[in-house]
């Protein structure tokens, strides 16, 4: 793409997914944590896939944070992530370890944490 004005998305949302609008994995949540695997990027990645790998270079991000940085809808990032997961280039983990989802003191830790922030 040429002549892209500053501040616009790298790739239009409808092109960014390479024609696939639905991810092959349904379980990517907005808050799933994405981490680059550190594998070298193959040459056949799309620009949007590379851009996603790029923002994960310096550390982990949630799906929604990656979407905000790339200026893409969350749905598009889910599709990109699914492709990179399939190729072992990205790792994803659920927002809360499965065993902890109903941990009784999770809410209490949230409340204590919020109280500690007050000044």
């Amino acid at each position: 793409m040429t002549g892209r004005p500053g501040g616009r998305p790298l790739v239009p949302a409808y092109l960014s997914t390479g024609g696939v609008a639905r991810p092959s994995r349904p379980h990517l949540e907005r808050l799933s944590v994405l981490t680059g695997s550190g594998e070298p990027a193959p040459e056949d990645l799309t620009a949007a896939q590379l851009a996603l790998l790029d923002v994960l270079e310096d550390g982990s991000l949630t799906v929604v944070e990656a979407a905000a940085l790339l200026r893409l809808p969350v749905s598009a990032v889910r599709v990109l992530t699914a492709a990179l997961l399939d190729r072992g280039l990205v790792l994803a983990r659920a927002p809360i370890p499965t065993a902890d989802r109903f941990e009784p003191d999770l809410l209490k830790r949230v409340a204590d944490g919020l109280r500690a922030l007050k000044h």
Binding site: L10, L50, A51, V55, L61, T62, P95, I96, P97
Partner: peptide, 23 residues
């Protein structure tokens, strides 16, 4: 390549992040 907006600093998750919840 022109990639993500330049200032991504401070946005990556701290290593200590374990349970992510939302309201």
């Amino acid at each position: 390549m022109a990639s993500a907006p330049s200032s991504t600093s401070g946005i990556h998750l701290p290593d200590t992040a374990r349970d992510l919840v939302k309201i």
